[in-house]
Every structure is written in structure tokens, then in C-alpha cells.
Amino acid sequence: MAWDIVQWGQFYTILMIGFALGMDAFSLGIGLGTLGIRLRTIAKISLTIGLFHILMPLLGIFTGMFLTKVVGSVASFIGGIILCYLGIQMFWAAIFKGDEDTRATRKIGGIEMLLFSLSVSMDALSVGFSFGLFAVNVWLAVVVFGILGMLMSAIGLLLGKRVGHRLGTWGEVIGGVILFAFGLKFLF
């Protein structure tokens, strides 16, 4: 079955929004990647972000018609707090444990991974709220968001890992500052 111009237009719109949502995952992934995390951890984080980029818009779409104005600002606020917390924790660990070179074996725990994925996906929740007001192909949107979120976070994490090895402890400090700065962006 062939798509008409309206369906192609909706696809390109969803693709552009998915790319914009994925840019957060990419840029924040660079900051987290400076920890020198393992490839297996990068894969887990990327898959978790992809999953959250599917679940959060679905949640937003199903509740969007009722709570768009109130929860949209609350979601950004919560995401900002989480990112600030992760940034401070990363900065603190780099400054006070900087003498030990544990970067190559640094593991990201399950709670940290879930918090990071949740905070990166908060804007997808807000997009879902707005989609709840329009006739949008829900499944196409969430699949595109999930795939782009996963791919862009993996690219960001890999880039951060590569740059982080060259920067040493300062890479961790810079990564913490990046996460904190994005958290502040969501708060204000």
C-alpha cells in the first residue's frame, strides 16, 4: 500500500522530532562516555534509552489530552534535577578519586543507568503529551523515537569514551559539568 503526501509529511515530521530527541541522548552520552565505560555498558545504556524513548512518549500520548500543561513543566524539572545529581556525582568522583585510574574499569550501576535513561527521555514524555492532542501514527512515532534515541546515545557514548581516554580525569570533570549544565537547562 502506497503512502500519500500527508503520511510522508507526518513521517518526516516524526523523523525530525526523533532526531531532536536523540540529540539530547547524544550530547548527554558524550558526557557520560568520558567515564571510559565498557562497550557492554554502552550497549545496555543505549538499549535502555531506546526503550525509554518508546515508553515515555506512549505514556505521554495516553495522558496528554488531560495533563499537558501541568506535567510538561514538572517532567522537565524532574529531568533537570536528575541530570544535576548525576553531574555532581560524576564531578565529585573525578575530583576526589582522581588519583586512582579506575576509568577503564568504571561500571555504571543499574540505578544510575535507569536514572540517566529516564532523565534523557523526559523530553520524549513532553512530546508524547503534545502528540496526545493530534492524530499521529503512534506506533510509527515511538519506533522512530526508540531507534534514533538508541543509535544517537550509542554514538555519543562511544565518542565520549574516545575523547575521555585522551582527557583523563579532566574528561570526567568535563562530563560532569556537561550533565550538570544540561540539568540546569531543564530547570530554568
Results as ranks from 00 to 15, higher is better:
Val127Ile: 14
Ile17Met: 00
Ser126Thr: 09
Leu159Phe: 11
Ile14Arg: 00
Gly128Ala: 06
Gln7Trp: 00
Met150Lys: 03
Phe52Cys: 13
Leu59Gly: 04
Gly60Tyr: 02
Ala75Thr: 03
Gly72Leu: 11
Phe188Lys: 14
Leu184Asp: 13
Gly64Phe: 05
Gly9Asp: 04
Phe66Cys: 06
Gly50Ala: 13
Leu115Ala: 09
Leu59Phe: 03
Ile155Met: 13
Phe62Pro: 07
Ala20His: 00
Leu158Phe: 11
Leu39Cys: 15
Arg106Glu: 12
Phe11Gly: 00
Glu100Ile: 13
Leu158Arg: 12
Ala154Met: 12
Pro57Phe: 06
Ala124Thr: 12
Leu125Lys: 03
Leu83Pro: 09
Val138Tyr: 00
Ile147Phe: 07
Phe77Met: 12
Ile88Ala: 14
Lys107Tyr: 10
Leu167Asp: 06
Leu47Cys: 15
Met113Leu: 11
Asn137Thr: 00
Lys185Trp: 15
Thr68Ile: 07
Ile95Gly: 04
Ala154Asn: 04
Gly132Ile: 06
Phe180Lys: 07
Arg103Trp: 06
Gly79Ala: 09
Ala2Trp: 02
Ser117Leu: 06
Val173Gln: 04
Gly164Cys: 14
Leu55Tyr: 02
Gln7Gly: 00
Ala25Trp: 02
Ile78Tyr: 04
Leu67Arg: 03
Ser27Glu: 11
Thr105Pro: 02
Ile14Trp: 00
Gly87Tyr: 01
Ile30Thr: 13
Gly31Arg: 02
Tyr12Asn: 01
Ser117Met: 05
Leu118Tyr: 11
Phe26Leu: 14
Ser119Trp: 08
Ala93Cys: 13
Gly164Arg: 10
Gly168Met: 12
Gly33Met: 07
Val71Asp: 03
Ile14Tyr: 00
Phe26Trp: 08
Thr48Gln: 08
Gly164Asp: 11
Gly36Lys: 07
Lys185Thr: 15
Leu125Gln: 03
Ala141Cys: 10
Ile174Glu: 04
Pro57Ile: 11
Val173Arg: 05
Gly176Gln: 05
Phe11Lys: 01
Ile5Met: 00
Val143Ala: 12
Arg103Gly: 03
Phe19Thr: 08
Leu115Gln: 08
Leu187His: 09
Gly132Tyr: 02
Ile54Ala: 10
Gly168Ala: 11
Ser121Asp: 07
Gly110Ser: 15
Gly171Arg: 04
Ser46Ala: 14
Leu159Met: 12
Leu118Val: 13
Leu140Phe: 01
Leu179Ala: 12
Gly146Trp: 01
Leu140Arg: 01
Leu167Thr: 08
Pro57Asp: 08
Ile45Glu: 08
Ile81Gln: 05
Ile54Glu: 04
Pro57Glu: 10
Ile49Met: 04
Thr63Arg: 07
Val127Asn: 05
Ala2Pro: 07
Phe62His: 12
Ile61Cys: 08
Leu157Trp: 03
Leu159Ala: 11
Lys97Met: 15
Phe26Ser: 10
Met113His: 04
Leu28Trp: 05
